[in-house]
Amino acid sequence: MVVSLVSPRLLMIGGGAVARAAEALAQLGLSRPLLVTDPWMASSGTVERVLAPLRAAGIAAQVFSETVSDPTDTVVEAGVARLRAGDFDCLVGFGGGSPMDTAKAMAILAAAPPGTHIREFKVPAQANRAALPVVCIPTTAGTGSEATRFTVITDTERDEKMLIAGLGALPLAAIVDYELTFSVPPRTTADTGIDSLTHALEAFVSRRANPEADQYALRAMRLIAPNLRTVYRAPRDAKAREAMMLGATLAGLAFSNASVALVHGMSRPIGAHFHVPHGLSNAMLLPAVTEYSLPAALPRYAEAARAMGVASAAEGDQAAAARLVEELRALNRDLEVPTPRAYGIEEARWNALLPRMAEQALASGSPANNPRVPGAEEIVALYRRCYAGG
C-alpha cells in the first residue's frame, strides 16, 4: 500500500509561538505579507498579536479584514482584487477557519485568469495551483484548516457551500499558539472543539483511512475528548487549551490525509441555507450519523471509543461502540448544543429544503467516504431525525 501524505512545510507549535511569526516568514524567504483576518480581530486589536512582532522585525504587513463567518465567493473576489493591487509575496490567514479558508481561496483564485469564478475549483476539480504561499495562524481550536488541503467557500448565487480541495489550499506553514484561544467565548469553544473531534473521528472511520493518518486521528481524539468539557467550563485552563489546540491541528492533518465523511457532507448545506456555524451543525448531526454508520465499521468506532476514554480495552466492540454514541449525546447535552428546532429553524422550511440539501451533500463527495454510504432518501431521513434531536 502506497500512502501519499501532505502537510505544511513548517509547523511552529506552542504557547507564545505567534511572537515568532517574523522568524517563520524569514525561514521561508517571505517578507511582504497580506494579512487576512476578520473585522472583529482588526477592531479589537487582537490582530496586533501578529502585526507587532512583524513590525519589530521590519515587516510592514498590510491587512485585509473583510472576511465573514461563512467565507463567500464575493469576499474572496474582493480579497483577490486587493491582492492583485499590491506587491505581496504571501498571505497570512489569522483567525478562525473563515479567515484561513478565505486566504487559501484567494491564493487559488489569484492563480487563475481574471474573471474565473471560485466555483470552477470545487470538487471533483483539483485546486493544485496557488498564486502565493499561505501561512496560517489559527485563533480557535477547531477547523484544523492550518494543516489541510481544503477550503470551504459559499457560492452566494446558488446557496451552496463548496468544498475545494488540492495542494493549492495546503498552507506552506502554520503557527499554532494555544494562548490565542484564551479569549474565545464558550459557544465558539464548544462548536470548534466538536468540529475538531468530528474531523478526527471521521478521518479514522473513513473509507480512505490509512495507517499514517490513523495515528494523527487517534492522538487527536486522545487529546480532545478529555479536555473539551474543561475548556468550555474553564476557558483559562492552559493545559486543556494546549491539548485542544494541538488536537485540532492533528485532526486537521488526519482528515487532510484521509478525508471527512457523512457528517461534514450533511453539515455544509445546513450552514449554507440556515447560517448555522459549521462546528455547531456538525454537533447537531454527529450522534445520529455515528449511530447510523456503526454497523459498517464497528471495530473502528469501538477503537475510537477506547481512544476517547469512554470504553475500556476489556469491552467488546458492540458495547464500546454503543458507549461512543452515548458519549456523543452526553457531550451535546453538556455543551448545550441545540437541535435545529431549538436553534430556531422553522420546520416547514427545513422539510422543504431537505431534497436539495441531500443533493448538495452527495455532490460534495464526502458521504461517499462514509463507512455506510447513504442514498438521498437515507440522508433526508437522517436530517428529519436530527431536526428535533431524535
Results as ranks from 00 to 15, higher is better:
residue 200 A to M: 00
residue 51 L to C: 05
residue 113 P to A: 03
residue 18 V to G: 09
residue 73 D to F: 05
residue 235 P to R: 09
residue 318 Q to F: 01
residue 15 G to T: 08
residue 350 W to T: 00
residue 161 K to F: 14
residue 96 G to A: 02
residue 30 L to R: 08
residue 311 A to Y: 10
residue 305 A to Q: 09
residue 197 L to C: 04
residue 126 Q to M: 04
residue 108 I to E: 01
residue 361 A to G: 08
residue 345 I to D: 05
residue 210 N to P: 14
residue 341 R to H: 08
residue 29 G to F: 03
residue 217 A to Y: 12
residue 36 V to I: 15
residue 198 T to S: 14
residue 112 A to Q: 13
residue 279 G to Q: 06
residue 88 F to M: 06
residue 246 L to C: 00
residue 164 I to Y: 12
residue 158 R to G: 03
residue 3 V to H: 15
residue 32 R to T: 00
residue 23 E to G: 09
residue 175 I to E: 05
residue 48 E to H: 04
residue 344 G to I: 12
residue 115 G to P: 05
residue 81 A to E: 09
residue 268 R to S: 13
residue 344 G to Y: 08
residue 166 G to Q: 04
residue 85 A to E: 12
residue 85 A to G: 06
residue 134 V to G: 05
residue 63 V to Q: 01
residue 247 G to Y: 14
residue 257 N to Q: 12
residue 273 H to K: 09
residue 326 E to I: 11
residue 45 G to R: 09
residue 52 A to K: 14
residue 156 T to G: 05
residue 268 R to A: 15
residue 366 S to E: 13
residue 44 S to V: 01
residue 25 L to K: 11
residue 305 A to W: 13
residue 333 R to Y: 11
residue 221 M to F: 03
residue 30 L to E: 01
residue 68 V to Y: 14
residue 353 L to V: 10
residue 219 R to P: 02
residue 48 E to Y: 08
residue 186 P to M: 02
residue 85 A to K: 09
residue 282 N to W: 15
residue 150 F to H: 15
residue 80 V to P: 12
residue 254 A to T: 07
residue 251 A to S: 12
residue 255 F to H: 10
residue 72 T to A: 12
residue 235 P to E: 02
residue 38 D to T: 02
residue 214 D to Y: 15
residue 361 A to M: 08
residue 59 I to D: 10
residue 28 L to R: 03
residue 141 A to S: 15
residue 336 E to W: 06
residue 67 T to F: 13
residue 98 S to Q: 04
residue 277 P to E: 01
residue 240 A to G: 02
residue 14 G to M: 07
residue 21 A to C: 11
residue 316 G to S: 01
residue 251 A to F: 03
residue 245 M to Y: 04
residue 370 N to M: 10
residue 340 P to N: 13
residue 331 L to I: 08
residue 273 H to P: 00
residue 298 L to R: 14
residue 193 G to E: 03
residue 342 A to R: 15
residue 344 G to D: 07
residue 277 P to H: 11
residue 184 V to W: 02
residue 185 P to T: 14
residue 65 S to M: 02
residue 370 N to W: 01
residue 280 L to A: 01
residue 293 S to A: 07
residue 92 V to P: 06
residue 243 A to W: 07
residue 245 M to F: 07
residue 15 G to Q: 06
residue 129 R to T: 01
residue 77 E to S: 15
residue 214 D to L: 02
residue 79 G to H: 12
residue 283 A to C: 12
residue 270 I to C: 11
residue 130 A to S: 15
residue 365 G to D: 10
residue 325 V to N: 07
residue 173 A to K: 07
residue 139 T to C: 13
residue 338 P to A: 12
residue 350 W to Q: 06
residue 63 V to Y: 04
residue 239 K to F: 04
residue 389 G to E: 04
residue 106 M to Y: 11
residue 255 F to L: 13
residue 327 E to D: 05
residue 58 G to S: 08
residue 307 A to Q: 14
residue 332 N to E: 01
residue 291 E to F: 06
residue 160 E to N: 15
residue 148 T to S: 12
residue 131 A to P: 01
residue 205 V to Y: 00
residue 290 T to N: 00
residue 153 I to A: 02
residue 374 P to G: 08
residue 157 E to L: 05
residue 135 V to Y: 00
residue 268 R to N: 15
